[in-house]
């Protein structure tokens, strides 16, 4: 099976984020990491390839720094990478981002495309589903298991409140992968070494521009959310804080 994995570089989970001066985006001088569900998507692609043979290709869009997620993907076992390299890709809405990816892979023939179920930055949870519709492929979201069948695949979708559902699908298909579908592997030293010699195709904004349009939705401003609750902060040594908390548990929350 030939599998494409869409990966995204997002700010590290505990990185302190600051707004830029115009309040339209974050200041980019932060540490980045692979969007967590995308790491699971990659792992699942590698496992499918190990079971059924084939090829795993990783793709991302963003400035030079985002190449790191492709390097990590290659080090873990992906065969090659595609980098849509331009800072302009960061500001695209999900519709145009999906169009850019579809344009970049128009000469490829994949059996499956995986994305993480959503990103930790925008959190749209849409790009994969939009790609599927643009390509005329079926899709299924929030996937926890993938089995190959004679005619296609059978996947396990996570529903809410502990419910699941199996779905039979033809190929090619697009799946959005849920965190926890598998156990992540680490890159080996050998893998990291080999990654340096694996092919990485760069795609410029100019190459895909004709496929893109104006953004259909616009972020007017980004800001620190207003508190909906008044939080009483308690400080002191651990012993002092513990005493204050017990007082609250007893006299205000009344659970002791």
């Amino acid at each position: 099976m030939k599998i494409l994995v869409c990966m995204k570089q997002v700010p590290q989970k505990d990185a302190p984020l600051k707004l830029n001066e115009s309040g339209t985006w974050i200041r980019e001088d932060v540490s980045y990491e692979v969007n967590e569900p995308d790491a699971y998507a990659l792992e699942e692609a590698l496992r499918q390839k190990e079971k059924h043979t084939g090829e795993v290709v990783v793709i991302t869009a963003g400035p030079a720094r985002s190449q790191q997620v492709l390097r990590e993907g290659l080090a873990k076992g992906a065969d090659r990478a595609i980098h849509l390299e331009d800072n302009g890709f960061v500001g695209l809405d999900a519709f145009n981002m999906a169009k850019a990816f579809v344009a970049a892979i128009k000469d490829e023939k994949f059996d499956l495309i995986f994305t993480g179920l959503q990103s930790d930055d925008y959190g749209y949870a849409q790009t994969g589903v939009i790609m599927a519709e643009l390509m005329g492929w079926p899709h299924a979201t929030i996937i926890m298991e993938i089995q190959k069948t004679e005619s296609g695949i059978r996947v396990k979708r996570e529903l809410e409140d502990g419910w699941f559902q199996h779905v039979e699908m033809p190929l090619p298909a697009l799946l959005t992968i849920q965190s926890g579908i598998n156990k992540l592997r680490y890159a080996t030293l050998l893998g990291i070494k080999q990654a340096k010699n694996k092919p990485l195709r760069k795609v410029t904004m100019d190459e895909v521009k004709s496929a893109l349009g104006e953004n259909l939705q616009k972020i007017e401003k980004l800001y620190v959310p207003q508190k909906t609750k008044k939080t009483e902060m308690l400080d002191g040594t651990p012993g002092e804080v513990a005493k204050k908390l017990v007082d609250k548990l007893r006299n205000e929350i009344r659970v002791m």
Binding site: D121, E220, P225
Partner: peptide, 19 residues
């Protein structure tokens, strides 16, 4: 204008339609 959370709730964004 619609409000949505971004960056895991660290920021909120005001978003409008441009279509």
């Amino acid at each position: 204008v619609f409000t949505r959370q971004m960056f895991q709730g660290k920021f909120a964004a005001d978003v409008s339609f441009a279509c």
